[in-house]
Nucleic acid binder design. Structure first.
Length: 861
DNA sequence: TGGACGAGCGTTTTT
DNA sequence: CGCTCGTCCA
């Protein structure tokens, strides 16, 4: 369930009365600090080293979260700081929630007095709201999602007459995002890069975009940090206020921080400058000043070449003061926890260098390594350690366990990906027969297209599964639409919101009308909504559109008035109802309409946990997510990326082939740095396993419709032979297992090519610059949710997921379906039964073709 | 304004 | 191959 209520709802101003309970209770326990019991010596040191900068290198499964939460408890119990004086940042809401939970357990009560425990973005956003006017915003500014961003950029590109075929808005959005990740405001973007987009106009559009955001009273995700940095730099007094407030800073997953986050942390972690001292003494904001020796110049031999490309080209880092200032500005008590071996978000702007250079950046830092692993058995840990040891750019840790050796990691080759899925399916059934809990089983893939085959297989077998990942709750179209209505009510200047719903549901207000509104708005410098109000009074629109628009304006006026007298949840219901939005989905006959209606209900329900509409909107885009639902027993299917931080007894790792894993594209684009990141991904995959890790590779795989022959991943060769067992594929065609050791141990399984220098996976198409940083939605849904009595969980567009109970598949029950019955299936849609075999049906689907499906997954249509 | 059809594309995605 | 997006037409 979503638990936004657990997160602070509003900016906590200067002197918020704090739940006295926490500190008091913690201190009461101080006599016998029980929370220290059970910590190993390193963990204990990490908890007790309170002064000065500390870097905790916490390998996988070494008790990272425990250290972090215990450290907070310790700070409180020692009376070193009050809860509101501790800044504790995570990357995800889930991690923040987890910390609050554990802290609550440790201290024996819910943590309400920790207003500054949250994600980078939510904390940045909170600070920004408090001082919004200093960055030309109002405190009720809107946080734009990617979609809004792209639409806004599209408009700007059009205004500049830039061909959006050649220069897609998405691409620019990605570019701007990466600039922001590097802490670069428009004027700081290196000229070459600024000119690289849109015939040299990229940088200019970035600047215009920022201006437009102010007019719209909006900020994008990147701004939550970047504008925060600007706020601090331009207002030393404000910065000082926060430097004074935060006595302790804790950072989770430090290896994932980007440059902007690093800069932000650095500003906050410096001891407050004396009032009256000029800002320049502490933070030379002059970007043109020569780079100070430090991070850049002393480039680390391991990570030279590739890392520099992203760095020297003008990240704000190169201009950042770095260490020279440190003597003047001593560092506070900052504790960063992370694992360089689990840095897998480099492509998204994370700087592994942040953690690799921690002791440079924070001189005198104490580095504590947590190397005792409490998760995996010996063979698994040895395999993972040996693999990751092939990376050069790392700080180096040696994980060890006191656990038994356990089972060896298995490597299984199959003829093709279908056989791979079949083999894994059979192993799953075996585990199931052996009484393993399916919740403790995961299949971790490199790329989401790999999931399809598994889904197909599981559906056929009647094996319950859930897919983790995909678009978040608030990214769903219906949620954004609903939010757009509420945003328009809350903030009439929010043109993007108004534009989004002006014709949803269809009101006959098409492009022409919107264009007209835009013209009006621009001429008079008023928001779209006000333009609409004005235009309605003229005869510029056709009578039909005019009437329709007038109705809409009147509706909004009414809703705004109602806001005064109605609760925000009721208001939301009224709006969704009166606008016809709910009706639109009720009338929709597509498979996922019901799911969307459910989502809308869920949205309204979640509003209850906020005080008012304003509070709800302020946090919704940052904290709304839905992971956390356990649901019924089911195998988890997810990407390696989304598996970080999780653990399972049994982990299946299919698709270890050159080109797929490591991904050819990453290799092409990032060179050795890319390879190392892929290897870290492999390491993350292996270390998710507690008891069994099973790796697979296929000799043939269909990519984009065509079959190609693949060769086993180089990572397989990097596994220590001693901890690995090569097994026969249970899929049956006799692959794998011959076990000789040639150039590659896996090469002599007959006909694979044997040299990595000639990868079988040649990417045929020349890799010309592709359009667009992100893919266009193409994925799947977050197809996870509780599984209710009807055996389905409905979500919106995209393939549906089925989470069935393990259907009584071996009971000789006859199906209640018979030949030619017309049925509906959540994933495949409509079809009719062509064959019945016990409770297994063969169904010819209208769209998906013929499939074998267990009967409880379909309903009569 | 929606349906039909072709072009183009095709990793990973914490906020 | 299969999806999504955009365009064009009824």
């Amino acid at each position: 369930m979503t638990e936004p209520s657990k997160l602070p709802h509003h900016g906590v101003p200067e002197h918020q009365p704090v739940a006295g309970g926490i500190a008091a209770r913690a201190r009461a326990a101080a006599g016998a600090p029980q929370y220290l019991n059970g910590l190993n010596p390193e963990q204990r040191e990490a908890v007790e080293t309170l002064d000065g900068p500390v870097l905790v290198l916490a390998g996988a499964g070494t008790g990272k979260t425990r250290v972090l939460t215990t450290r907070i408890a310790h700070i409180l119990s020692q009376g070193r700081a009050r809860p509101q004086e501790i800044l504790s940042v995570t990357f995800t809401n889930k991690a923040a929630r987890e910390m609050k939970l554990r802290l609550g357990q440790m201290l024996g009560q819910a943590v309400e007095g920790m207003p500054w425990l949250g994600t980078f973005h939510s904390i940045g956003g909170r600070i920004l709201r408090i001082h919004a006017e200093l960055v030309q915003l109002k405190s009720n500014f809107t946080v734009l999602d990617v979609d809004d961003q792209v639409r806004l950029l599209k408009q700007l590109l059009q205004a500049e007459n830039i061909d959006d075929k050649r220069w897609p808005a998405r691409m620019l959005a990605g570019l701007i995002d990466s600039w922001k990740n590097r802490g670069l405001s428009p004027s700081q973007v290196p000229a070459g890069e600024a000119a690289s987009f849109g015939n040299g106009k990229g940088g200019k559009i970035y600047a215009t975009y920022q201006e437009r955001l102010k007019i719209l009273n909006a900020a994008d995700f990147g701004d939550l940090l970047l504008e925060n940095i600007r706020l601090f730099r331009e207002n030393p007094d404000v910065l000082r206020q926060y430097q004074n407030r935060f006595k302790f800073i804790l950072v989770d997953e430090y290896q994932d921080t980007n440059v902007a986050q690093y800069l932000w942390l650095r500003l906050l972690s410096q001891a407050p400058s004396r009032p009256g001292r000029s800002l320049a003494d502490v933070i030379p904001g002059d970007i043109t000043s020569p780079a100070i020796p430090g991070r850049l110049e002393e480039s680390n031999p391991e990570s030279s070449g590739e890392a520099d490309s992203s760095r020297d080209s003008g990240s704000a880092l190169s201009a950042h003061p770095g260490m020279t200032e440190d003597a003047a500005a001593p560092l506070k008590n900052i504790c960063c926890v992370g694992d360089d071996d689990q840095s897998i978000y480099g492509w998204r702007g994370a700087e592994v260098d942040n953690i690799l250079r921690f002791d440079h950046d924070f001189p005198g830092a104490k580095v504590i390594r947590l190397e005792r692993n409490y998760r995996s058995t010996g063979h698994i840990l040895a395999a993972a350690s040996h693999l990751i040891a092939h990376n050069e750019g790392r700080l180096g840790k040696t994980l060890r366990t006191e656990d038994v050796d356990g089972e060896k990691v298995t490597v299984t080759g199959s003829w093709d990906s279908e056989e791979e899925a079949r083999a894994i399916g059979e192993e799953l059934e075996e585990l199931q027969r052996a009484g393993e809990n399916l919740n403790d089983v995961a299949i971790l893939v490199r790329a989401s297209f790999q999931m399809r085959e598994f889904e197909d297989r599981f559906v056929t077998l009647g094996l319950p599964y859930r897919v983790i990942g995909g678009p978040r709750f608030y990214e769903r179209a219906e949620i954004r639409d609903a939010l757009a209505y509420l945003r328009t009510i809350n903030s009439p200047a929010d043109d993007l919101a108004f534009e989004r719903i002006v014709n949803v549901p269809k009101r006959g207000l098409g492009d022409a009308t919107v264009q007209l509104l835009h013209d009006h708005a621009r001429k008079r410098r008023i928001p779209l909504f006000e333009a609409a109000r004005a235009v309605v009074e003229t005869d510029e629109l056709k009578p039909k559109a005019r009437g329709s628009l007038r109705d809409l304006v009147m509706q909004f006026d009414r809703w705004r008035a109602q806001r005064e007298v109605t609760s925000h949840t009721e208001l939301a219901e009224i709006v969704l109802d009166e606008s016809g939005y709910t009706e639109m989905w009720q009338k929709d006959r597509s498979a996922d309409a019901a799911g969307r209606l459910d989502n809308l209900k869920e949205l309204v329900r979640s509003m209850e946990e906020f005080e008012n509409l304003q509070g709800f909107l302020e946090h919704i885009s940052l904290v709304m997510d839905r992971d956390g639902e356990a649901g019924d027993e089911a195998v988890s299917l997810m990407t390696l990326h989304s598996a970080k931080g999780l653990e399972f007894d049994n982990v299946f790792l299919p698709g270890w082939e050159e080109g797929l894993f490591p991904s050819q594209r990453t290799l092409d684009e990032q060179g050795r740095a890319g390879l190392e990141e892929e290897r870290r991904l492999a390491h993350v995959g292996l270390t998710r396993a507690r008891r069994r890790a099973k790796i697979y590779f296929a000799t043939n795989r269909r990519i984009h419709g065509t079959w190609s022959t693949t060769i086993p991943s180089r990572f397989l060769d990097e596994l220590p032979a001693h901890n690995v067992e090569i097994t026969e594929s249970k899929g049956g065609s006799g692959w794998g297992g011959s076990g000789g050791y040639g150039a590659s141990r896996f090469d002599n399984l007959e006909s694979f090519g044997s040299s990595y220098s000639t990868p079988g996976w040649q990417r045929a198409q020349a890799n010309r610059n592709r359009g667009g940083g992100g893919r266009s939605g193409g994925g799947f849904e977050e197809r996870q949710s509780s599984f209710s009595s009807d055996n389905f969980n409905r979500t919106k567009r995209g393939p549906m997921v089925i989470e069935g109970e393990l259907v009584a598949k071996s009971t000789g029950t006859t199906s209640e379906f018979s030949l030619d019955d017309r049925v509906f299936h959540q994933k495949f849609g409509y079809g009719h039964v062509v064959k019945v075999d016990g409770n297994k049906l063969t169904i010819a689907f209208e769209k998906a073709g013929e499939k074998k499906v267990v009967d409880s997954f379909v309903e009569r249509a």
